[in-house]
């Protein structure tokens, strides 16, 4: 697993994708930092994530779309799947690499916290909880993006599927109220943003992640039969 993890992580930073993801994410964060915090002169760090979580809808698919689709198209999955590594190891290796990039980006938001600290007295515990929540949200998104990448050979289709799904989970709750119980973004808004960790929301995020990692493993295992 570590061999695949190392190679994938290296790949993110050999190609522009890793830089693009972190760059655009931080650009958006800076924008929202200015709009949501600076202009209102508040010291509530969590406000930063309110808007920037919507950006994840569009940038996580950029990160995840190539995970399996590219290998499938180039045929390099033949190298991977005929090596003595189990499919679980392969999927987890790739997943962990993408998660690492996402977490690096999330941790970089701590610099805004430092800026706030220069001008006011932000509450550190709530800030940490909101960062944790944001990291969990992005990891859940990555798991779905990976799943989307595993079911198609075309990177663009993979990206479109994930963007569509994230948009649904963003807007569906405002149309059907009961859907908000299952919306990832709402799970983040409801508790982590306020600096609290609610068990039901935490479970939603973690189980969603686990489910789609498992789905990816199953998809790749079953594709052996129909290839």
């Amino acid at each position: 697993m570590w061999a695949i993890y190392k190679k994938e992580l290296k790949n993110y930073f050999l190609s522009p994708i890793g830089y693009v993801y972190i760059g655009i994410f931080l650009l958006a964060c800076s924008l929202f930092f200015y709009l949501d915090i600076f202009t209102y002169q508040s010291s509530d760090f969590a406000n930063l994530f309110g808007s920037s979580s919507t950006v994840l809808t569009f940038i996580v698919p950029v990160l995840t779309m190539r995970m399996f689709a590219e290998e499938r198209k180039n045929g390099t999955e033949q190298i991977l799947l005929t090596s003595p590594k189990s499919i679980t190891q392969i999927v987890l290796g790739k997943f962990c690499a993408a998660v690492s990039v996402v977490i690096i980006a999330t941790l970089a938001t701590l610099m805004y916290f430092l800026v706030l600290k220069c001008f006011g007295v932000p509450h550190i515990a709530t800030a940490l909880v909101s960062i944790l929540g944001f990291a969990l949200l992005s990891i859940a998104y990555v798991s779905f993006g990976m799943f989307a990448s595993s079911i198609t050979e075309n990177q663009i289709i993979a990206a479109v599927i994930s963007v569509g799904f994230f948009l649904l989970s963003w807007f569906l709750p405002s149309m059907i109220y009961s859907a908000s119980n299952f919306s990832l973004m709402y799970a983040f808004y409801m508790s982590f943003m306020n600096g609290t960790i609610a068990i039901d929301n935490l479970t939603l995020l973690l189980s969603f992640t686990l489910m789609f990692v498992l789905f990816t493993i199953i998809v790749i295992q079953k594709r052996k039969l129909v290839k």
Partner: peptide, 12 residues
């Protein structure tokens, strides 16, 4: 040890 058809390789 397997050498597939069309030699798929990691180009980067």
């Amino acid at each position: 040890g397997y050498m597939p058809e069309n030699v798929p390789l990691y180009n980067e």
